[in-house]
Design a protein around this nucleic acid. Structure first.
Length: 537
RNA sequence: GCCCUCGUAGCUCAACGGAUAGAGUAACUGUCUUCGGAACAGUUGAUAGAGGUUCGAUUCCUCUCGGGGGCACCA
């Protein structure tokens, strides 16, 4: 394995630098010169400049170096881009977390999809990753639900009806009545518990179906109700440390810098989601000793997590050894730019969106049902992931399901195209081991490439860097950006030059190798995004 | 009222403080007797406003205007 130029420069300059194979010749003035993986410094002036003001370090990557990257991609295959840097470290990712008795709405797509991508990215970098689906299966919302079930005397435990009851409750709210039922539930009332159980079972069945369509499988599903027995421990420890106080009958912790305290117990003694989150943290720390816990939760809960994290540090549940991160993803907004509110019955059901997208993929020519599903679901996942994690997203049926342009299916299509070319290559030319090391040689025997080939090559080798950065910055959209660029450059090349009927055998073999490599990276990258890559579509 | 966040092309979005601000879409125009047209190429079009820091600002700071979210007994 060659020593990476990046590492070399890191050593030399002492801080990370951005490497570019410059697009324009005049940018090469301050360039380093790379030869056979070794780096020669063209001018000390460059080092000084970078030390002083930062900026670019341009490197003229030799054609041979570039084409060696193709072999490297092919050789490493499914592992290309992965590292072992996370070896021995555990990361817990809290994601998806739908609420019981509500259908899986478009709002939960972000957490589920982004969470899964973050999961895959960290796993790819060698971390031990634990995904935990922190189900909303406890809390006053169940008081509301049980209250309505008792009030209407309904026997209809379909999720549709439960959701309707929730909306009905908020039209004529009786908060005291709801709190009483939740208190009864927490006190172990048999009737309340039995109704709760039915609601959970119905909801879980619904969620399982959605996860199946999405192709998402989350390691653990503890859910909030699991922490019933741990919450008293948290109360005890909080009181021992003397950080609690009673305010208006509720047990709270004052958090410096915040106007309102964090409430652990309500005035009726019922638990809050804050204490459940603390209990969860205590449990996770004890069970997995993670280096980091990522909460893939929307930005609307920023205040809550800031307070919970602060109190967790007071309690010793987090701090130096456990890093807590809240991703604060943006919300889906409706056409009027407003939040989708379940309480008002204003949501878009994820299942409807998925079905519609799959239907459109089918109509466009996906014969096999599996492929239509992969393409439709892939379109939606890519749409979500390609946005910067922090920005709000306006939900638009047409844009969510885009099957062309900068979209999931574009990447899938490009992958399928590479596979199609390769299957023809192996039968027509019998080159089971395409040699990627040869381009069109010039008269002196040096390897040269045309502009389109070079454009792909100059992009190909960056995949590992992109994966790293996406993990560090918790930004799966960087992977999307990269894959789209790569696919786009490959398609440009594809449209301009023939692969299988290239002028020389060397050129043909090189282009076949390039196709293998591009296909491999698309496959690896889509895998990180949890988007399927069918060989045909 | 207070806190957080966002404001980039007609629309939807990109861009570790770095080079000529990139795409998609829409509109218009082209490419293909040849490996998959869900493709490729081209034209039109943008950093809300005013200051500041910096060699350099879409990015950092301040203010104004505008959108969104939140502000203890929902999660």
């Amino acid at each position: 394995m060659q020593k990476s130029i990046r590492d070399y420069l890191l050593e030399k300059i002492g801080k990370p630098v951005k490497l570019e194979h410059p697009e324009r010749e005049e940018w090469g003035d301050y360039a380093f010169f790379a030869k056979d993986g070794e780096v020669e410094i063209k001018s000390d002036e460059v080092i000084e400049r970078v030390e002083k003001v930062g900026g670019f370090v341009n490197i003229w990557l030799q054609n041979e170096w570039l084409s060696n990257k193709v072999s490297e991609v092919i050789k490493e295959g499914d592992k290309y881009g992965s590292t072992a840097e996370g070896s021995g470290k555990t990361v817990v990712i809290d994601y998806s977390a739908p609420n019981i008795a509500k259908r899986f709405g478009i709002g939960h797509l972000r957490s589920t999809i982004i969470g899964q991508a973050l999961y895959n990215l960290h796993q790819f970098l060698g971390y031990k990753v634990i995904g935990d689906n922190h189900l909303g299966d406890w809390g006053t919302q169940f008081g509301k639900l049980i209250y309505m079930i008792k009030k209407t005397g309904t026997e209809d435990y379909t999720i549709e009806n439960l959701e309707k009851l929730y909306v009905l409750f908020h039209q004529e709210p009786d908060d005291d009545g709801a709190r009483k039922w939740f208190k009864k539930l927490e006190d172990g009332d048999v009737e309340a518990k039995s109704i709760w159980k039915k609601c959970v079972d119905v909801s879980m069945a619904e969620f399982e179906r959605i996860y199946q369509i999405l192709g998402v499988k989350i390691d653990e599903t503890y859910g909030e109700s699991f922490y019933e027995d741990i919450m008293p421990e948290v109360i005890r420890e909080a009181k021992e440390r003397g950080i609690t106080s009673v305010s208006e009958g509720a047990l709270v912790v004052e958090v410096p810098g915040f106007k309102t305290p964090l409430m652990l117990l309500k005035s009726d003694g019922g638990t809050t989601y804050a204490i459940r989150d603390l209990a969860t943290l205590r449990f996770r720390k004890g069970k997995w000793s993670p280096k980091m816990i990522i909460y893939e939760v929307g930005a609307e809960q920023t205040l809550h997590f800031e307070q919970v994290f602060a109190v967790a540090r007071m309690l010793g549940y987090a701090g130096g050894d456990v890093k807590l991160v809240h991703t604060k993803h943006g919300l889906y907004l409706d056409a009027d730019g407003k939040k989708f509110a379940t309480r008002k019955g204003k949501t878009i059901k994820l299942e409807e969106v998925l079905e519609e997208a799959i239907g459109r993929a089918r109509k466009l020519g996906c014969e096999e049902e599996e492929t239509a599903k992969a393409v439709g679901v892939g379109a939606i996942k890519y749409f979500d992931l390609s946005h910067n994690i922090s920005s709000d997203i306006v939900f638009d049926w047409e844009k969510v399901m885009a099957l062309e342009g900068n979209s999931g299916p574009y990447l899938q299509y490009t992958f399928a195209r590479t596979q199609s070319v390769l299957s023809k290559a192996s039968t027509q030319y019998l080159t089971p081991n395409p040699s990627p090391n040869l381009g069109e040689g010039n008269q002196r025997g040096e390897v040269v490439f045309n502009d389109e080939e070079r454009s792909v090559l100059r992009y190909l080798y960056r995949f590992p860097e992109v994966v790293q950065e996406a993990a560090v910055r918790l930004a799966p959209n960087l992977v999307c950006n990269y894959l789209y660029e790569l696919a786009s450059k490959y398609n440009t090349f594809y449209n301009k030059h023939s692969i299988l009927s290239a002028g020389s055998e060397e050129a043909r073999n090189f282009r076949i190798g390039l196709t293998v490599a591009v296909g491999q990276i698309l496959k690896n990258g889509l895998g990180l995004l949890e988007i399927e890559a069918p060989g045909r579509m």
